[in-house]
Design a binder for these strands. Structure first.
Lengths: 259, 259
DNA sequence: ACCGATTCCCTTACACCGTACAAGGAGCTT
DNA sequence: AAGCTCCTTGTACGGTGTAAGGGAATCGGT
């Protein structure tokens, strides 16, 4: 299968674990521990570990259960569905982001904070390539995602962008990072699976493409753009592109700012 | 299930239908028609129709086969795998985009062309919500995707952006549109599935969120941003955000341009 | 007109998925 | 000791993608 783009059966139509999910207090019985040592947090963290290790495609309730020495159905005592579990995992890793507090230090430059935050978000998406399909699919209203979007909101307010442009600014910046991180993470995952470095994989792809005459213009264009950039490795080029894109966004914000 | 983010079994590790796929010439036998009227083009167009109608989640080889009055395995004569088929479908709809020819009319303003192209791309992603997971997952080197990226490349070259910034500019613009269109398309799909208009759904979600005290700041922030914008419907707000984001990107490009 | 090769489609079967359902066992309260 | 609640498990259903092989129709060459 290709893309983790969908999960919907015909059930009631939930919006989010955070709204309709069963109480998180499952587990924690009065007297002592659970027979199996299971626990919502242990489950989500095992989920994250598995997703990191083997990807969204290979993740299954049965596989996770095996990892926890338990049957698949036991998990359903703590979680309503696989989707809910994934939503929990998504919020869990969102908590890895270190958020600046834009209002704490009035002298801090929003430019620096924006650069840090976008780099952090990008790194997050790359570190957990399974994340971006989920971000695209859920409402992202878990505590950590909420914290992030509040932070982003405060940050953008400090740019001086007029209020009616702020939402557009947020979209421009963070949808960009989302798209960029998605592609980058996916590419890196592909390389890892093929057992190649990024540069090897890139060379391999170029070779394969080179075999097709009709793709020649693409090759030319690609070569051209590669030469225009300073770096030599794929990583260098990507870093260059990312920072120059963010730089461009910052320039755009400044240009649309009331002074 | 949630996201169509993945399909990888343990097979040889293909890169793309366009590189290793079986010859497209399957079908078209010399003397007359196929016994079942099957044909690679008929299959892909049926795939697109089904994906549009029921989404990536519900799409399956068996379902498609039923639509074509054929068994599932028959399809595998024309296509190596479900993934290959999806890649074909992806390129098929990419062909719906009308591309400007930036070099044809030297007087045309690149700003207008960029606005048109981004709107077209956005509309494409919204019209086919199943597309974006696929775009994230494949190499997108089918003829139509290639045509698009060549066009984008020529377009960006006309902005006056210095060469080493062009890749970043492309990324900033098109990853943004990708992210934006992904979210928008997904949201609209959700609404349609729930049988609600976007505004009803939005109101419903706000109501549900309002039930949780810890989410109050989000509500406030959301209200605030809603009020800052002119439009009243969700659609209006989104259009406003999109155009203002593109406007911001254009401003950024201009600011980083050599004159 | 015959024959082997090619092309096309179908049947069967496998391993896997998410999860509904109901029965069971352990521990606490009474 | 009985009963209750919490937790775990076994079994089963209806789906998935697709490997393997069978059989029919049609082709090219004779």
């Amino acid at each position: 299968m290709a893309a983790a783009a969908d999960r919907d059966t015909k059930r009631p139509a939930r919006m989010s674990v955070w709204l309709d999910g069963k109480a998180a207090s499952r587990g924690r019985r009065a007297g002592g521990d659970q027979p199996s040592g299971l626990d919502r947090e242990r489950i989500t963290s095992a989920t994250v570990r598995l997703l990191d290790a083997e990807g969204l495609a290979k993740f299954s309730m049965r596989r996770l259960a095996a990892e926890l020495d338990v049957t698949a159905m036991s998990l359903y005592w703590y979680v309503d569905s696989k989707d809910d579990l994934l939503e929990l995992a998504s919020d869990a890793v969102a908590g890895e982001l270190v958020l600046p507090d834009p209002d704490a230090d009035p002298d801090a430059d929003w430019r620096d904070q924006l650069r840090d935050l976008t780099q952090g978000y990008r790194a997050l998406l790359v570190r957990h390539p399974w994340l971006s399909p989920l971000v695209g699919h859920f409402l992202n209203i878990g505590p950590n995602w909420v914290a992030l979007s509040l932070c982003v909101q405060r940050l953008i307010r400090r740019t001086g962008l007029p209020p009616e442009r702020q939402a557009g600014g947020i979209a421009a910046v963070f949808q960009f990072v989302y798209g960029f991180g998605t592609i980058e993470g996916h590419f890196r995952k592909r390389c890892a699976e093929a057992g190649l470095t990024q540069d090897e994989y890139f060379a391999h792809a170029m070779g394969a493409v080179g075999g097709r005459a009709e793709l020649a213009p693409v090759m030319d264009a690609a070569r051209e753009m590669v030469e225009a950039r300073s770096g030599e490795t794929v990583d260098d080029m990507r870093d260059h592109d990312f920072t120059s894109a963010v730089d461009l966004l910052i320039a755009g914000i400044e240009a649309r700012t009331v002074r």
